[in-house]
Design a protein around this nucleic acid. Sequence first.
DNA 1: ATGCTTCTTGCAATCAATTGCAACTACAAG
DNA 2: CTTGTAGTTGCAATTGATTGCAAGAAGCAT
Lengths: 153, 153
Amino acid sequence: MSCQEHFVRQLHERGLRLTPQRELVLKVMHQLEAPATAEEIYARVHALSASVDISTVYRTLDLFREFNLVATFDPGDGIRRYEHLGVEAPHHHLVCRACGKVSQVALEELQPLIAHLAATSGFVADTVALTISGLCAACYARDCCHQIEQIPL
Amino acid sequence: MSCQEHFVRQLHERGLRLTPQRELVLKVMHQLEAPATAEEIYARVHALSASVDISTVYRTLDLFREFNLVATFDPGDGIRRYEHLGVEAPHHHLVCRACGKVSQVALEELQPLIAHLAATSGFVADTVALTISGLCAACYARDCCHQIEQIPL
DNA sequence: ATGCTTCTTGCAATCAATTGCAACTACAAG
DNA sequence: CTTGTAGTTGCAATTGATTGCAAGAAGCAT
């Protein structure tokens, strides 16, 4: 089953409709080889059909996220990136708070934690789109006075 | 050493200054008994001194975050909450994507994961302010068709 | 105290993202 | 094919948050 067929089926399951706008955004997501901002995605959609509004792109990307067709993360600059799942295996993101570098972590590496949370509190963590902030190895080495201590009132 | 003294010392270490505005925001943070939005914090600061601008509140809260005086998280509504550390022990947040409920996880529970990341990639995760999205036990039970499958292109 | 340098502030403009609403349209039923 | 209805869109306004900049003030040295 193609991605588009899968998408149509998920739409139907929820009583939603396939529109030209949604097809265009899906097509653009397939062309992306790297995570992109909503503005970048909008630019590509706009090139295909100039009448599509950016708010429609945002709404469609939200829909894709609900359907787990895309994952989102914020590399720390406050601008959300959308990443098509299927291009790469689902993975989590480590974002360096100092240099902004984004590295990936395979799902499996977080499995013990996710299993632990499920066992202790019943919380089922999303298996896509977890973003962990911190310092990458290089920045940690540079910034050695990063003690995090408890402050008394 | 009081929180304020600690704050002044951290300011001096970076060549920054103690201003009435920063003292006010710190005072308001101490009065909070629950995480608050920037707007709520601004309202309290404004009540103490009407001339303080909201952009100053945002800048000051950013500073507090750098100093690990506050932690921030987004419970899923797109509005950031600021939480004074010291009122409660530092902790991570589990945010339910369906009902918005926020539960807390002690630092220790994530220690194995953090240690694992440090060992494999050298990435030092922040020990405050990690937010994990997912479904709480109740919503998971209700929403049973949450399969996250890999979509072929 | 006084002056000087550098940081900080308030203001307004801006940015990314969301939302209300009326016009429009996908699509199933007849 | 036609119709009806509920989902969808474009537009404009709005929201939460950030930023550029000139005026102002903290804090150090004299």
